[in-house]
Amino acid sequence: MTMSKSHAGRVAVITGAAGALGREFALALAAQGCDVAIADISAADHVVAEIEALGQRGYSEVCDLSDPGQIESFVSATLDKFGRCDILVNNAAYMPVIPFAELGLDQLRRFQAINVEAAFLLAKLLTPGMAERGYGRIVQIASSTTGTPMPGFLAYITTKMAGIGLTRSLAAEFGGRGILCNALSPGLTLTPESRKNLPAELFESVCERQLIKRNELPSDLVGALLFLTSEGCGFVSGQTINCDGGVQF
């Protein structure tokens, strides 16, 4: 018996899906019947090939999300190709570790541009079509660091908190028009980039504070993402869903 796909016929836009979490999200959505468009600072042609291997249409564009013009160009090309967008996943994040004493205003503004303003502009460009059709799902990828501030993460945490505020406010704006907006908050996730940039001791200490005693992997977030972008999520909006192994702050 053929199993139906939960997201059949939908179109998803995902930022930062050339690797790690975003790639996992893109492939999971494609496996459930979504066509997927990707905006990333790095080329994502390999992910598009994987999406197409799953029988769905894919599109990617190298896009600096701090540049509104590039975002507008990406959205225009996506709508030309797919005709609409039903799901927006704001996954891309700018997150270098910079001590407060070394953090300049220009650097803070780049965090703001990529982590908050890009999500705002994508919602601005894509929600009119969602509202017209009476269906939309927006998921903002948040961070467990908002509950456990650490030195060097001031700009990242500040903008991740702003992203949660943006999500809750969008939920209020669009709740009567079928567009549901939620944040998904991962814990410390083991990826090639995080393994390279963060000390092993940090992974060990976080693991000790989790109820689930192992490192979080990108695949651990897929179930929550699929729920928040599904028709079954019809009465959940304005929420932040923690998917962090039950970390105890």
Score class of each variant (00 low, 15 high):
Ala31Lys: 14
Ala31Gln: 14
Ala31Val: 03
Cys34Glu: 03
Cys34Ala: 13
Ala37Ile: 05
Ala37Cys: 06
Ile38Cys: 06
Ile38Gly: 06
Ile38Asp: 08
Ile41Met: 04
Ser42Gln: 15
Val48Gln: 08
Ala49Asp: 10
Glu50Val: 08
Ile51Gln: 10
Glu52Trp: 07
Leu54Trp: 03
Leu54Gln: 12
Gln56Phe: 05
Arg57Trp: 08
Arg57Val: 10
Gly58Trp: 04
Tyr59Arg: 12
Tyr59Pro: 04
Val62Ile: 14
Cys63His: 01
Cys63Pro: 06
Asp64Ala: 06
Ser66Glu: 11
Ser66Phe: 06
Ser66Met: 05
Asp67Val: 13
Gly69Ile: 01
Gly69Ser: 14
Ile71Tyr: 13
Phe74Leu: 11
Phe74Glu: 04
Val75Phe: 02
Ser76Gln: 14
Ser76Arg: 15
Ala77Gly: 12
Leu79Phe: 09
Phe82Gly: 07
Arg84Ser: 09
Cys85Glu: 04
Asp86Gly: 02
Asn90Ile: 02
Ala92Phe: 12
Ala93Glu: 05
Tyr94Arg: 01
Ile98Glu: 00
Pro99Ile: 01
Ala101His: 06
Ala101Ile: 11
Leu105Glu: 09
Leu105His: 05
Leu108Cys: 14
Leu108Asp: 08
Arg109Leu: 07
Arg109Tyr: 02
Ile114Gly: 02
Asn115Arg: 12
Asn115Lys: 08
Val116Asn: 12
Val116Glu: 01
Ala119Gln: 03
Phe120Ser: 06
Leu122Cys: 08
Ala123Val: 10
Lys124Glu: 12
Leu125Lys: 14
Leu125Thr: 07
Thr127Asn: 10
Gly129Ile: 01
Glu132Asn: 03
Arg133Gln: 11
Arg133Asp: 04
Gly136Ser: 04
Gly136Thr: 05
Arg137His: 07
Ile138Ala: 07
Ile138Tyr: 10
Gln140His: 12
Gln140Asp: 10
Gln140Ser: 11
Gln140Thr: 07
Ile141Cys: 11
Ile141Val: 15
Ala142Ser: 15
Ser143Tyr: 11
Ser143Ile: 05
Ser144Gly: 06
Thr145His: 08
Thr145Ile: 10
Thr145Phe: 13
Thr146Cys: 10
Thr146Ile: 15
Thr148His: 09
Gly152Thr: 00
Phe153Pro: 00
Phe153His: 05
Leu154Gln: 03
Tyr156Gln: 07
Ile157Gly: 07
Thr158Glu: 05
Thr158Val: 07
